[in-house]
């Protein structure tokens, strides 16, 4: 069974976000970029399926300018077998991304496609679900456990009320939540090996997908800063403040 993992290059989660002074966007100049943490979990899950003898090949893909090859190599170092880059000048919107992945799905015919549930830059949480609609597949979103049984994926999902388990007919889409697994660190020999693994580059135009804009970004602002308050010396003082100053109890 072939597994396809789609990953995104985002700013490193430890970097503090700065908004540009003209409020046109966030400032990503000279900022450390990384594999989106949810995508890293998706790659790890695919690699574990291969190690368990369930998956036979793990293909990793990413969309964007040449720089995204760095994140494809990271995924290859974690254990994916080969990479595909769909080259675009900028980072397309979720629906365009889903259309490009759907095209790769059509060519590669994987039995399972794993994505992160959301990217930590746009925080959209959309691409996996959109891809499922475009490919006519079932979707196991916000997954904390995935089991392959017969011709189905049993996916346990983190939902507001607790956990829900659904069975999806394969091929299917899974999006990873935080507790699906704990990704490994790539070892130095594996990082070296990853450099020699195949990486195909295709342009969006080659795939025949027209990238249409659905959203116009008008402005980006820093959030209203919350002012820190005071330190209280004792539980008594805290109770007094909550009762008589804040009046919330």
């Amino acid at each position: 069974m072939k597994v396809l993992v789609a990953v995104k290059r985002v700013l490193d989660h430890n970097v503090k976000v700065r908004v540009k002074s003209d409020h046109s966007d966030v400032d990503l100049t000279n900022i450390k970029m990384a594999l989106n943490p949810f995508c890293e979990i998706a790659v790890e899950e695919a690699v574990r399926l291969k190690e368990a003898g369930i998956a036979t090949e793990v293909v990793v893909m990413s969309i964007g300018p040449k720089a995204v090859q760095e994140q494809i190599r990271t995924a290859l170092a974690l254990g994916a077998d080969r990479g595909i880059q769909i080259e675009t000048d900028t980072m397309p919107e979720s629906l365009s991304v889903a259309k490009l992945i759907a095209k790769v799905v059509e060519d590669e015919r994987p039995s399972l496609i794993i994505l992160g549930k959301q990217a930590i830059d746009s925080d959209n949480n959309q691409t996996g679900q959109m891809l499922a609609a475009l490919t006519g597949m079932g979707q196991g979103t916000f997954a904390s456990d995935v089991e392959i049984q017969d011709n189905e994926a049993l996916v346990t999902r983190e939902v507001d009320g607790g956990l829900q388990t659904v069975a999806l007919r394969l091929p299917a889409i899974v999006t990873s939540d935080l507790r699906l697994n704990e990704p490994r660190y790539a070892s130095l020999p594996n990082i070296m090996k990853a450099k020699k693994k195949p990486l195909d580059v295709k342009s969006a135009a080659e795939l025949g997908i027209e990238l249409r804009a659905h959203t116009e970004l008008l402005k980006v602002e820093p959030p209203a800063e919350r002012q820190g308050g005071i330190k209280v010396a004792s539980v008594e003082e805290l109770v007094d403040k909550l009762k008589n100053e804040a009046k919330v109890i």
Binding site: L95, D123, Q126, Q129, A132, D160, H214
Partner: peptide, 22 residues
């Protein structure tokens, strides 16, 4: 909610439109 987030992107793709999340 998790229900809305699960459902709405699938609706958006079926209608070939974008979605403003959250």
């Amino acid at each position: 909610t998790t229900t809305g987030k699960n459902l709405m992107p699938r609706v958006a793709a079926l209608l070939d439109v974008g979605l403003q999340s959250d």
